[in-house]
């Protein structure tokens, strides 16, 4: 199935699903970072501008440090995200899903000079369009990926219903599905909600054994039971 998820198997045999981030959110994250960077540079310039050549020298050193270490420090010490990435809900990881380290972060940020060519990341953009994992050249060399941290939000409160114990055993993903349904009910049309619930209706085929009741209210009840209400 076509998707932007990469599944990664850890040595412990656990598989994690990483949701890759593409050029549009990443460009906006870069733009945000750039504005912060420009602001910081400007402010230090105003402060140091009055102190002559010495101040100018310091300013250039600060510019150098900001250019090369602003992204690296944030990526290493702030959970893999510069402020811009944090705003867009993005995180930098190594290819195997572990947090990005010093060397990888240095490499991917040094190679910004290549990605930037010939103007404003045109090479990086082309690379992202051609790479299945949406990597720019720096990501390819440093073996890093950028992924989404934010998930689609669930509503805070499930719709009102009396909690109903589950009549059958359900796996955790199946339980999540019932909760997701309950969460979605307010946004579905009543007809559509009923139609969905009926898929689970026992009338559609089996005998006397206990099973789920396929109507909206019962499913809402199960959902409240699953989230811990009794």
């Amino acid at each position: 199935m076509l998707d932007t998820i990469r599944t990664i198997e850890t040595p412990e045999g656990v598989s994690i699903r990483l949701r890759l981030a593409g050029p549009v959110p990443r460009a906006l994250a870069w733009l945000t970072d750039f504005l912060i960077f420009a602001f910081a540079w400007l402010v230090t310039g105003i402060f140091l501008g009055s102190s002559g050549d010495f101040g100018f020298g310091i300013w250039l050193i600060i510019a150098f440090l900001l250019t090369w270490f602003y992204p690296v420090l944030f990526e290493v010490y702030a959970q893999g995200a510069t402020p811009g990435k944090k705003m867009l809900g993005l995180v930098v990881l190594q290819d195997d899903g572990v947090p990005v380290g010093w060397s990888a972060s240095m490499v991917r940020n040094l190679l910004r000079t290549v990605d930037f060519l010939p103007l404003f990341y045109a090479f990086g953009l082309c690379s992202m369009f051609l790479n299945r994992d949406f990597k720019r050249l720096g990501d390819i060399v440093a073996k890093t990926i950028v992924v989404h941290r934010d998930k689609p939000r669930l509503a805070q409160k499930l719709p009102q219903a009396n909690a109903l114990p589950l009549p059958v055993w359900l796996s955790s993903s199946e339980q999540q599905l019932i909760v997701a349904f309950a969460d979605r009910v307010p946004r579905l049309t009543p007809d559509r909600a009923q139609e969905l619930a009926q898929i689970l209706d026992p009338a559609s085929g089996h005998g006397t054994r206990a099973t789920l009741r396929g109507d909206v209210d019962s499913l809402l009840g199960y959902a409240r039971h699953i989230v811990g209400e009794r």
């Binding site: 199935m1 998707d3 932007t4 949701r19 593409g22 867009l88 934010d150 689609p152």
Partner: peptide
């Protein structure tokens, strides 16, 4: 042929690139 799941709109846009 596309995985059906809920997505943020950023993820939806990224899926557009995967489609291309």
């Amino acid at each position: 042929a596309v995985e059906i799941r809920t997505r943020t709109h950023w993820e939806a846009i990224d899926l557009g690139l995967a489609l291309v």
